[in-house]
Nucleic acid binder design. Structure first.
Lengths: 245, 245
DNA sequence: CGTGCTTTTGAAAATCATCAAGTATAGTGG
DNA sequence: CCACTATACTTGATGATTTTCAAAAGCACG
């Protein structure tokens, strides 16, 4: 399989310079000063990824880094028989492609219409060498992801279905960049399908559906639509998520 | 809970300088030149951790980094009711404590008698700032761990008990630093207890035991003792581990 | 207003967990 | 050195959570 060909994925060079990038504050690019931003901008290739399209394929030669600047993507690994594990969702500010190996360790596909910035791996590497602040920022990013990964291992290895779903909803809520600031009664948007949630939580679609239905019937959440959730009883959900059921 | 007090954990300053450290090749310290090693050595506090003793406690203020120089430690997270997820085993060369947060995200406990090098967090941070090669190495380490974590998520979320155990044994085998170089019929040493394996694979002790017994009865492995395994049919195990059962 | 896909709901089945007990192993002290 | 205790590992029977299989209900889109 191939990664992003120009024909498939229009590169809008110059259309969205780093200086005006909405992802700048939260992303690794925040490490770069206003004045040096121009140097970064020439390396960045902004591109649109329509919902459902894959832009990183596990095993392909890792020629690029990516930064998500809008939308949501899912990162996943597959087993030969099709079983899938989503290892994370990438939204605005997420940096993708950290890997020492020469090939990607996971695939990435847009969950909804998404914008990413593509960087040539060797060129960005060179840029990083010139800006140690960037390297440091990358280490912070990687460290944070490592912590999140460990938390997810705890979820996958030891939490019940109920606890997993509660954890997921709370994580979505506090994911500030995903939407509106956290407030009681705030709506949580779930741009990903139930299947994706299932593959992220190590469960099946049916279990996700049943569990959410039950949480609703117990008054812990509201479902305005399959993709719009309201947390009605935050304390109870937090208890669940922490494993104090 | 407290982390490492001097009384509990003798600090053997100077006993094992970095220059002669067996972990040097594989660890982050490899990034440092012979000539600068002295500067690193003064920061390092080598210490013994007897089997069963904990030396990092989740939630405690993260005041130190650690490098494992001998033995094996388990890293884990706990749920309030005692459920445990081991997120990894640390052996010679493993760097511990990467986290942006001010408190540890996991606990660490020696599986067998273990030696670690302890570094004051702020001091090592300063050292790293002076040696960009070290920062780069840390990023590589973090990236590799991230890839491993994703692989483990796939295992925990989507693999069967058999597949998990097969994956584990193969991972132990190819863990070059853990023992003798890989060769057919080579013995795999499992210094950790069955409970630890269970908590690492998201299963129970009984399932681990049953699964290994079955692998043995099928001729895929040999068990010289509970802690000494021989892979008899590597191809079959690899098929299992890859999910092609 | 179909058509196709996602989500939900139901019933049966299966993997793995739990409970329980027996066996082996290691460490301790007489 | 050997019995004794504690711990770890193994094995068996039972049970439960979750999966699988199946189908209906909701929605979006042409």
């Amino acid at each position: 399989m191939t990664t992003l060909r120009a024909r498939q994925m229009p590169v809008l060079r110059g259309v969205e310079p780093c200086a005006s990038c909405g992802a700048r504050i939260s992303s690794v690019c925040a490490a770069i000063d206003e004045k040096d931003l121009e140097r970064l901008a020439v390396l960045a290739a902004p591109m649109q990824v329509p919902a459902g399209r894959s832009f990183i394929t596990e095993g392909d030669p890792a020629e690029h880094f990516f930064t998500v600047t809008a939308g949501t993507a899912k990162l996943f690994k597959l087993l030969p028989d099709g079983r899938r594990q989503i290892t994370g969702f990438a939204s605005i500010g997420t940096f993708l492609g950290l890997a020492v190996s020469s090939s990607y360790a996971f695939s990435a596909e847009a969950v909804e219409d998404t914008q990413v910035c593509r960087f040539s791996r060797p060129r960005l590497r060179q840029f990083i060498d010139d800006f140690p602040a960037m390297e440091r920022r990358l280490l912070d990013v990687a460290s944070n992801e490592l912590v999140a990964a460990q938390e997810q291992m705890l979820l996958l290895g030891r939490k019940t279905a109920r606890e997993r779903v509660a954890s997921f909803l709370l994580a979505r809520e506090s994911c500030a960049v995903c939407g509106i600031p956290t407030s009681p009664e705030a709506r949580i948007r779930l741009p990903m399908a139930r299947t994706d949630i299932a593959d992220y939580l190590g469960l099946t679609v049916e279990t996700i559906s049943r569990t959410m239905t039950r949480l609703r019937s117990e008054g812990l959440i509201d479902m305005l639509s399959p993709t719009e959730i309201v947390l009605r009883n935050r304390a109870a959900l937090e208890g669940l998520a922490a494993g104090m059921s």
